[in-house]
Each structure stands twice: as structure tokens, then as C-alpha cells.
Write a protein that binds this DNA or RNA. Structure first.
Lengths: 145, 145
DNA sequence: TATTGTTATACTCTATAACTATA
DNA sequence: TATAGTTATAGAGTATAACAATA
């Protein structure tokens, strides 16, 4: 592999290794763990504050119906609360509960722990630095594209 | 965010932004495109040569039944061929067809094109370099963990 | 009319269980 | 018995279509 910036190759490689890593993380999931979409939605409600189904769906770029299913699961665990919007009867506002905060703050996620363990076993400090540099770039492109 | 190596944070952030990017790539898929599991399996058969269902399932770390479904789809498109192993009647050997080579070599993948376009629009040359440095690291951890 | 949300249905990717054929 | 593969079934995560309630 050359050191040229082969953007096409970066894109092709990433789509394959993302899917491999998603599988690994799914397999590392333990019974009782939140799923990735659930964590992602919960973290967003925590970060952005109380929010509607439609707004959350847009932010995560999935359909409102799909987001509804994820939010039902979070509500069933008591991690978020639904409340009516007094100003607009159509709206339902989701907010994070104390239990939701507790889950987010705790390290109750076997997937993340497995990834962390693999990173520490596999990489040198310098390589971890390279990886850390790439994370905000991936986050940026995920939010923008 | 500090510049400390916070491995836990890298792992947590990656699992969320992987799932966002997987969604974007799924949405970019066009009718007729291969799915990511299909591309991944086809690329592996191409790279590793003729291979059995079980061996491919182990390499991709999914069940033989799941791999079977993916391979059926590839065979239905004529991208791989099945042949009996003369030395072991239980085995079915999959090999890539000329059409499969053509698909792999061509740039017939709207997902990869979209990712590439987003990279070029979003990143500086230096940032693309950082991203390129991270790709082999992610591939390594995906293969090892 | 347009927007918010829900219910119903279907597809993809994955899993486990149970089976057949072969070694 | 053990291994290779297939069929049947189920669950998670997503989608679209159709609907009700509200603005």
C-alpha cells in the first residue's frame, strides 16, 4: 500500500472494517446491555436536552417510526420519560431520567469494554494516538454527510 | 477534550460513530448495489481464493447459516460459483467468477462513493492523512478481536 | 394543509435449533 | 461420533405506507 492519499481506498476499506467491528461489538453485547442505537439516542437526549421523537430521528438520521421503537425500549427500562408539550398537543417530549443518567455515566457496556480491551492489547501508545486523532474526524463526517 | 489517551472514550465514541456511519452507508445504497456483507465476502473469496462456507463464516466471524445466506445472494447474481470438493463430499467450494471480479474491480458501490465524496468535501489533506493512518489500525483490531 | 406521532408490515442481517449427508 | 452444509424460525434495526390528532 502506498502512502498516497487514496480516498477511494480509504472509503472502501472503512465500509468493510466498520461492518466487521459492528459484528464484534454486537457479539460482545451482554444480556441487559443497551443496544448501540439505544445508547446513541440516550446520549443525545442527555447532551441536547429534552427533545421530540421527530427531532431525535432527524438528528440520528433514521425514520421517526424507527426512533419511536428505540425510545419505547428506553422508556420501558425507565431511562427516559415522556411528557406532553403544553404548547403543542401533537408533541411528546422525551427527557432523560436519573436512572438514564446513571446508565450513561456508568461503564455498563460490554461492547465498549471489549473494544477498549482490544485497543490496549493491540496498539502501542503512538498507535492509540493516531486512532484518537481519527475519532473526531469520523464523528464530524458522520454528523455532516 | 484533552489530548490524554482516554481509551475508554475512544471506544465509546467509536461505537456510536460507527453506527451512524453504517446508517449513512446503508441509506446511500442504490438498488442493484451489493450489500456490505456481500462485498466483504466477495472480497475475501477474491483475496483468499476458493473457500468453503464454514471457513468463510469463521473468517468473517458470523455463523455458517448467515454466511450461507450471503453466499446464496452472491451466487444468484453469478458473482461466485459453487463446486463440489472431489476429496470430501460434504464440502462445497466457492470461487469468484469473472463477473465477480468485474464487480470488485469496478466502482459500482454508491456507499463507497458517498463516503469518498464526504471525505473530500469535509477534510483537509492533512486530515485525510490522519484518517488514512487509522484505517490499517481499525482493520487490524477488527481482524484480531 | 402541514406536522407529530403511532400502528402495521416488510426487508436485511444476524442468531440458534434441528436436520441430512458424508467422513 | 464429528464435520459440512441446509432449512426453519426468531430477534434487532431499519424502511415505507396509512392513519389519527393537532396546528
Amino acid at each position: 500500500m502506498s502512502t498516497d492519499l487514496n480516498v477511494e481506498e480509504i472509503a472502501s476499506s472503512l465500509q468493510i472494517c466498520f461492518s466487521l467491528l459492528m459484528r464484534r461489538m454486537r457479539q460482545a453485547q451482554e444480556s441487559g446491555d443497551l443496544t448501540v442505537p439505544q445508547i446513541s439516542a440516550l446520549a443525545r437526549i442527555d447532551r441536547d436536552g429534552p427533545n421530540t421523537v421527530t427531532a431525535l430521528a432527524k438528528a440520528e438520521q433514521i425514520s421517526p417510526q424507527s426512533m419511536g421503537a428505540t425510545l419505547n425500549a428506553l422508556e420501558a427500562r425507565g431511562l427516559i420519560q415522556r411528557s406532553a408539550d403544553p404548547a403543542d398537543g401533537r408533541r411528546v417530549v422525551l427527557s432523560i431520567s436519573p436512572a438514564g443518567h446513571h446508565v450513561l455515566r456508568g461503564r455498563q457496556n460490554a461492547r465498549a469494554r471489549q473494544l477498549e480491551k482490544a485497543f490496549l492489547a493491540e496498539f502501542t501508545t503512538s498507535e492509540l494516538g493516531q486512532l484518537m486523532a481519527a475519532v473526531p474526524l469520523l464523528e464530524r463526517v458522520a454528523a455532516e454527510m
